[in-house]
Simulated scan of single mutants.
Amino acid sequence: MRLIEIDDVRDAAQVIEGEVVRTPLLRADESLWLKPENLQPTGAFKLRGATYALSRLSAQARRAGVVTHSSGNHAYALAHAAARYGTPMVAVMPEVTTAVKREAVRARGAQIVLVPAAERESRTAALAAARGLTVVPPYDHPDVIAGQGTVGLEIVADLPDVDVVLVPVGGGGLSAGVATAVAALRPSAKVIGVEPALAADAAESLRTGTLCEWPVAQRARTSAEGLRGSLSALTLAHLRARLDRIVTVTEDEIAAAVPWLAARGRVVAEPSGAVATAAYLHHRSALPPGRTVAVVSGGNVDPAAFAAALRGGEIRDGAQRD
């Protein structure tokens, strides 16, 4: 199995330049910087990998159309990129996906197919076969991983002496790409994945050395819906080779990080986007010391739910829990 290398990430950076926002580093306290990927046009880092993967398809494949499965952010990103290319797109989304994410995808001209969460991948494969569409997966593809790796490229360029990079882990595309870039450019830095404790199958996979996939219903318990995916063999191989380790955070810790990011960083984060910061806030003593960057992976959150979080409630599937 071929792992992507730094040259793949550099190529992706050249291709997507001008198509995605080169997000800044924002200093949040004496040793923490934030990488606010919520500032992307689609509100999340996923635009990087989706844009690069689509660019790598043949003109014929782009004309025929693409299909993906996603809880929201990848579908939104691919719909945005597909609209730029004039490519037809179908998004297979879980029935529980928040309305704000569904409407964002639909507004970009994509067709949405809602299915039970456990049927996302099988329905995607069936649609691809029936309609002659190309599957652009949310993380299980080298081009997607290379595109997400540009986050790490920018971190090291802006903070060359970075010591620790905290990155959310769901399906593993972002963490695999970031770890690849940082390991090549700043070998002394530690790249640490952060995962919700209620969906910690990646932590188990790294601990056991084998791919562990928790039941969909079990992973669905976390408020961080963007991190409910499981690793693939490809992303696990990258993480085993290049990630330092994974730490897990509780739902209360995630919920507390959302208003902290708003107050201290002026950053709007969805629960998935807040997990890296949650690790810094609540597990700092267990992390390596030094200059730390937390990747805020996205900010596509329902406005009412975000308001509830600022009042001290929780965000859970777009609904308030006080």
Rank of each mutant, 00 (worst) to 15 (best):
V100K: 08
K101M: 03
K101L: 06
R102T: 06
R102P: 01
E103F: 12
E103M: 12
E103Y: 14
A104I: 09
R106V: 09
R106H: 14
A107W: 11
R108W: 15
G109Y: 11
A110M: 08
I112K: 05
I112Q: 09
I112R: 00
A118P: 11
A118I: 15
S122Y: 10
R123K: 15
A125H: 10
A126N: 13
L127W: 01
A128H: 05
A130L: 12
R131M: 10
R131S: 10
T134E: 05
V135S: 02
V136I: 15
V136N: 05
P137H: 11
P138E: 02
D140A: 12
D140Q: 07
P142R: 01
D143Q: 13
D143V: 14
I145P: 05
A146R: 03
A146I: 13
A146C: 13
A146Y: 09
G147D: 01
G147M: 03
Q148C: 06
G149I: 14
T150D: 07
T150F: 09
V151Q: 07
G152W: 02
G152M: 04
G152D: 02
G152P: 05
L153P: 00
L153N: 03
A157H: 14
A157L: 08
D161G: 00
V162T: 13
D163L: 09
V165S: 03
V165E: 01
L166G: 01
L166W: 01
V167S: 00
V167Y: 07
V167T: 14
P168C: 06
P168L: 01
V169G: 00
G170N: 04
G171L: 08
G171R: 02
G171W: 03
G172R: 02
G173D: 00
L174M: 10
L174W: 11
S175M: 05
S175C: 11
A176C: 10
A176H: 12
G177S: 07
G177C: 07
G177P: 03
G177N: 05
V178M: 00
V178I: 14
A179M: 01
A181D: 06
V182W: 05
A183V: 06
A184E: 15
L185Y: 09
